[in-house]
Structure formats: structure tokens, C-alpha cells
């Protein structure tokens, strides 16, 4: 399973990559939203994890691009910063499948990824 992970905080990004890789995923990590989107355009991936706020382009813009311009239904989880409800609602509105408020619990993340992948494979 291939994951594209976009998160500009190195510590969190590296930790999440390490965690997900040790669970058997192939993780492509990016600190810049635009670079992540390039990778999404050029490669197949099974799920996209992205922070909402990032240099380059934001997680919301990325989601919009994937859904509308690329027309792809790849599952997307958006990491939001401390529960701001409106943002989360917006995230759903533009086609994200799930959002998670930071701090990200790795085990919860794993469960949600597995759930989305399962739904997507149906």
C-alpha cells in the first residue's frame, strides 16, 4: 500500500513515516504541498495524508485538486490543528474522507487508514 504524506514539521513527518513503514506501508513523504501534489499527479498512491497548513499549497487546495482536476477518489485524511470545527466541516465539504486533529495518535491513524483502504477496495 502506498501512502503520500505531506507534513511540514520534520519530527512529526519522520515519526509518522517510520511508524507507517514499520506497519508495512510504503511512504512517500513531503514537506511541501506542491511537491506532494506533483508526486500524486505522477504516481499511483492508495491513500493521501496531508497537514492542512503547509508551504507550497495547503491540504485543502491539494484535496480540491485531486478531486476536481484529477478526478480521483483516492482516500484523503487531513490533519487539522486543534479542533476548529469549521475547518473540519470544510474539509469534508471539499471531498476529504476524514480529518484528524493533532496530536495524531498513531494507532488511531492506523485504524482509520485501514478502514478507508477497506472501504475503497470494495
Amino acid at each position: 500500500m502506498k501512502i503520500i504524506l505531506a507534513e511540514d514539521n520534520d519530527l512529526l513527518r519522520k515519526s509518522l513515516s517510520f511508524f507507517l513503514e514499520s506497519k508495512g506501508f510504503e511512504v512517500n513523504q513531503f514537506a511541501d504541498g506542491r511537491e506532494a501534489l506533483e508526486a500524486i499527479k505522477n504516481n499511483d498512491c492508495d491513500i493521501i495524508l496531508t497537514d492542512i497548513n503547509m508551504p507550497g499549497i495547503s491540504g485543502m487546495e491539494m484535496t480540491q485538486y485531486v478531486r476536481i482536476t484529477l478526478g480521483r477518489q483516492t482516500p484523503i485524511i487531513i490533519f487539522t490543528s486543534s479542533g476548529i470545527e469549521q475547518t473540519e466541516l470544510d474539509a469534508f465539504d471539499i471531498g476529504a474522507n476524514d480529518f484528524m486533529a493533532k496530536p495524531i495518535s498513531p494507532s488511531v491513524l492506523l485504524v482509520r487508514i485501514n478502514k478507508l483502504l477497506k472501504e475503497n477496495n470494495r
Binding site: 511540514d8 514539521n9 519530527l11 490543528s81 493533532k102 496530536p103
Partner: peptide
């Protein structure tokens, strides 16, 4: 601040 916020919970 936004960026640092992700380091602290670690």
C-alpha cells in the same frame, strides 16, 4: 507556531 505545534506532542 503552527509548525512547532506538531513537535511538542511528540
Amino acid at each position: 507556531a503552527h509548525n512547532m505545534k506538531s513537535s511538542l506532542p511528540i
